[in-house]
Nucleic acid binder design. Structure first.
Lengths: 249, 249
DNA sequence: GCAGGCGCGATACTCAGTACCCTCCGAGCG
DNA sequence: CGCTCGGAGGGTACTGAGTATCGCGCCTGC
């Protein structure tokens, strides 16, 4: 009818009402003690509508990740060859942090939920996995042709995600106080230092080798290389020489 | 009693029959088209017994991971301070490969299943996550006190798992032909090179030494640089060190 | 004003997972 | 010898997530 009083509040779409109702109940009585029927009853909608907006009960706990994943994919797709790949995936990871930081209270509550509900933890893993795959796919493209390109891509993507999550979780564990951005920057800087090679590091150098004298063939890992070089030698020559002696790519 | 009474603990009871029946049906008509009732009917046991042996339908697809995880935990717990931590987690990861390699045909079938069933992929993620946590917890212990100890632990554990899985999956994708061990060794070597620092020592130490002896500041072009490095130090780290000492980009 | 589309609700069904209770079987004990 | 006890397996019934189907009402476009 013409009356609008029966309609809940000026249309925060049903989806938001479902999220709000779900979290109220999850916090009140726990995730597993809350049925979908409870949620839809509180939200005042039909049961069928819940599954129209969320493919599963778990999805209502992560209502914004689908969009964030799309943002990340778009961000990576918009990258050009001028971007250093490792830095680019670090920046992509920061998109996720931004989403969490936009709503600290919500993020902390969700974190507590996922910590104590195994089913939610498993679901979160699959979400994180999709982020990691997006980063890895991007890196695989950038590393195509390089030796061990896919290996490097997968490892770097995993390292970036792990570093990001390490910082994010420590921020969440402290109830969202402190500078999450700085913590994530620090963690990602560690990964970036580890993997971002000085653009196509040329190579170079003059070397002598051996644990204790001449005749030492390719010794076991752990022995020592002594390199003597003129100070004014071009760096790339030093590296070239090193590679030759070490017998590595 | 009469047949095979004791020693090998008479292990294979109903459990193995359930696994066999489950895989037959999964391969015949697909995972989601197979109900637990189908499985127990084929195995000739009661429905209740299925859940006695497997907490969920997904678990029947990974019947050996629980034991492997226990092996890994024991392996890490049995580590001493004499073990280099990064090498140790690499060795721990090889335990998982060994389990897969013990039964290539089964592993390949399972891989195909998990590839095409989202629910199984999600479940596998939670299994992998537990391995990663075991590695990370071990490293956290070994890195306790170091700056960014937990960060390093988490990142290295993730890198090890990613490298292992990269090699493992490429082996599985090729239907289990080729040397899985060699592929995993190669992948883990990459991670080990990246992270294994020579027992707290810097990757490389460069010493400036001039013709005029010590005390000489940044000498003129023409004097000599002596660099001492562990043979297994990552090359780019050596270069970083060189750059620092030489004061060049 | 009418027709069609669609968002939504209601009912009914499948199946995973759980709770409860039953039986069978071997072991110990009166 | 029979009784009990305990544990492994089976059967029945229930909860709740997720799906299929239908029917209604509202909004839009002709």
């Amino acid at each position: 009818m013409s009356s609008s009083s029966a309609v809940p509040a000026a249309k925060p779409p049903i989806r938001d009402a479902l999220v709000a109702a779900a979290f109220r109940l999850f916090l009140e009585r726990g995730y597993e003690q809350t049925t979908v029927d409870d949620i839809v009853a509180l939200a005042g909608v039909g049961r069928r509508s819940f599954f129209r907006y969320f493919p599963s009960k778990e999805d209502v706990v992560f209502p914004d990740h689908e969009g964030c994943l799309a943002d990340m994919t778009a961000f990576l797709a918009a990258s050009g060859p001028e971007h250093e790949p490792v830095r680019r995936v670090c920046d992509a990871a920061r998109l996720v942090l931004r989403m969490y930081a936009e709503n600290p209270a919500f993020s902390v509550q969700r974190y507590r939920l996922t910590r104590q509900v195994p089913g939610l933890r498993a679901y979160e893993l699959s979400v994180v996995w999709r982020y990691e795959r997006a980063l890895a796919e991007y890196l695989r493209g950038r590393f195509a042709g390089r030796p061990d390109g896919t290996l490097r891509a997968d490892v770097i993507a995993a390292a970036v995600v792990a570093a990001h999550n390490n910082a994010l979780r420590s921020w969440l564990r402290s109830d969202g106080v402190g500078d999450a951005g700085a913590a994530v920057d620090h963690a990602l800087a560690y990964v970036h230092r580890t993997y971002a090679r000085p653009a196509d590091a040329p190579a170079a150098a003059a070397v002598r080798s051996g644990p204790a004298g001449p005749g030492g063939g390719p010794g076991p890992a752990g022995d020592v290389v002594v390199l003597v070089s003129r100070r004014d030698a071009p760096l790339w020559r030093v590296v070239q020489e090193l590679e030759t002696v070490l017998g590595r790519p």
